[in-house]
Design a binder for these strands. Structure first.
Length: 506
RNA sequence: UCCUCGGUAGCUCAAUGGUAGAGCAUGCGGCUGUUAACCGCAGGGUUGUAGGUUCGAGUCCUACCCGGGGAGCCA
């Protein structure tokens, strides 16, 4: 729906091409400005996009010209003018200004259109949200949410909200945020799954979509203390049906984003090829096969090749840097700027390489010495996915590393009917789940073996006492999924206000 | 909790133990089509904190604080 159709009194940047030749009014903020004595180019953003507004001194009144000259970054503006085609512009049009009003001034906006460090940006997250990359990422997040609801609703799933405050700790309290609930202990939820199982017995197929909290003291690019999880749960589903569903869901989500977020992905400079390769079928390998692959000579060779390539790149960059510095003395000012800019790029890349070269030998050792029966570490998952060109589905894990409610493999009782989906390009686990145990006595034994308080699980055990059926489900981490799709290197940029260990504001 | 890297101007970064600099941002001046515009000038510093070594410390040592990355744990 256009702004006009929605009853708004001004148009959005997004729909400007439809107004070519007409006079329109835009309301937004000054993103950047370039100018000369009689001409100012205002880059104006309104939340839907960016457009260049051209102000000529001789075609606006004195007040408007002064505003154009004096407006600083992020000043709020109302701009009226004619939309004209211009090939040089990203959107194909620009606005030739006839009147200009200042709504709110902006003094010394801290985020300049240059380089900033992550600490500074995170401390100014409330303003950083206005920049291009957060804009692109959070627009894709919105599209993913729409796609997820559409996918499940089209397949007859009922969306349900699981409680956020819970009384029982499902898997140990070390990873739970504890709080006082009228003199009782309560926790912020770390999964809606048990409640989802109850709802699946009532509605057949359901999914939750809500916040999840983990108090793990993790400071890595894959962790948030507050993140959003989608957890489908299906009555009368076995492991294979669940693998099919997870595969269909991922293919649908990627396809939907590719269809609707071309501009955003381009802004992120995302290589689309790995996303376009996400088609059925995904490789399905058992945990045991994954362990064999991890310990294989093939893995050692692959990592050696990677290490060597990085060392060569590092040497080449060091050489270039030395050559540039030698040239710097005689260089003209404009060339010095180029050299400065190049030095920043080299600096950043050598930092990445140093980090990788520090990690890779340890990752290689970890993979080589991996023993059947342990759970995969972050590096093991990354190394595994480097062998494939699309997401991989790993199934049938050792029961010991999975939760108490997992169904055992009837062909091998050491195994749980669990599934993990690992994203390609080293993005790691995005889905975890499996088939749930149906047998009351087995579950009671597991609760005892895990030293969990049985009273707290009586309601859950009722689901087995009254018409227990095969059922299964999984959890999809929205931020990890989005990190992969956007091709960025940290989950913190995929949620408007990330909650991380050591950072609770803004 | 452990390992590792870092903390210098508002921001991003330089600076053999020897006079703390550059780009951007800001202010002033110039330029009629700029694309992170460009050109000139100017202001801007308790080098994270506290000690120590030294004729002399941004640089070396010790402790602490803060941040990045990783391990464990996990979506």
């Amino acid at each position: 729906m256009t702004h006009a159709a929605a009853g708004f009194r001004h148009v959005s940047v997004q729909e400007l091409t439809a107004y070519e030749g007409q006079e329109v009014t835009l309301k937004g903020w000054l993103y950047n400005k370039r100018g000369s004595k009689h001409l100012q180019f205002l880059m104006v953003r309104d939340g839907t996009g960016l457009v260049q507004c051209v102000v000529a001194a001789d075609s606006v009144d004195v007040d408007a010209w002064r505003i154009a000259e004096e407006a600083t970054q992020e000043s709020a503006l109302i701009v009226t003018g004619k939309i004209v085609a211009d090939e040089r512009q990203a959107g194909g049009v620009e606005l030739v200004v006839s009147t200009l009003k200042l709504v709110g001034e902006s003094v010394e906006y801290p985020i300049t259109p240059k380089e900033h460090g992550i600490d500074f940006l995170m401390s100014h997250r409330h303003l950083w949200l206005r920049s291009r990359l957060p804009w692109a990422i959070l627009r894709i997040r919105n599209r993913l949410i729409v796609a997820i609801h559409t996918f499940f609703q089209d397949r007859g799933f009922l969306q349900m909200d699981a409680p956020i405050l819970t009384g029982n700790a499902v898997e140990g309290t070390s990873s739970l945020f504890e709080l006082d609930y009228f003199d009782e202990k309560a926790y912020l939820t770390q999964s809606g799954q048990l409640y989802g199982e109850a709802m699946a017995m009532a509605f057949g197929r359901i999914y939750t979509f809500g916040p999840t909290f983990r108090a793990e003291k993790s400071k890595t690019r894959r962790h948030l203390t507050e993140f959003w999880m989608i957890e489908p749960e299906m009555a009368f589903f076995d492991l294979d049906m669940t693998l099919d569903l997870a595969e269909d869901l991922l293919v649908y989500m990627i396809g939907d984003v590719l269809a609707h977020c071309k501009e955003e992905l381009a802004m992120l400079e995302r290589d689309l090829a790995p996303l376009e390769r996400v088609r059925k079928p995904f490789p399905r390998i058992s945990y045991t096969e994954a362990v064999e692959l991890l310990c294989s000579n093939e893995t050692v060779d692959m990592l050696s090749v990677r290490i060597q390539a990085l060392e060569e790149e590092n040497a080449a960059l060091a050489e270039e840097l030395a050559a540039n510095r030698k040239r710097y003395g005689q260089a003209k000012k404009s060339e010095r700027r180029r050299l400065d800019a190049r030095e920043i790029v080299i600096h950043r890349r050598t930092g990445e390489i140093a980090e990788a070269l520090q990690n890779l030998p340890a990752w290689k050792a970890s993979a080589r010495s991996f023993k059947w029966g342990s759970d995969f570490g972050g590096s093991d998952e990354t190394v595994l996915t480097w062998h494939f060109d699309r997401p991989i589905m790993v199934h049938r894990y050792p029961a010991a590393v999975k939760a108490f409610y997992m169904k055992r493999d009837p062909d091998d009782v050491r195994l749980a009917m669990a599934l993990d989906v690992l994203a390609p390009e080293g993005y790691g686990e995005i889905i975890g789940g499996g088939e749930r145990a149906t047998d009351l006595v087995f579950l009671e034994e597991q609760i005892a073996a895990h030293q969990l308080p049985k009273e707290a699980f009586e309601w859950y055990l009722d689901l087995r006492r009254f018409g227990s059926v095969p059922h299964a489900g999984f959890g999809l981490g929205l931020e990890r999924m989005l990190t992969w799709i956007a091709g960025i290197d940290h989950v913190r940029e995929t949620i408007p206000f990330p909650r991380l260990m050591g950072r609770i504001a803004p």
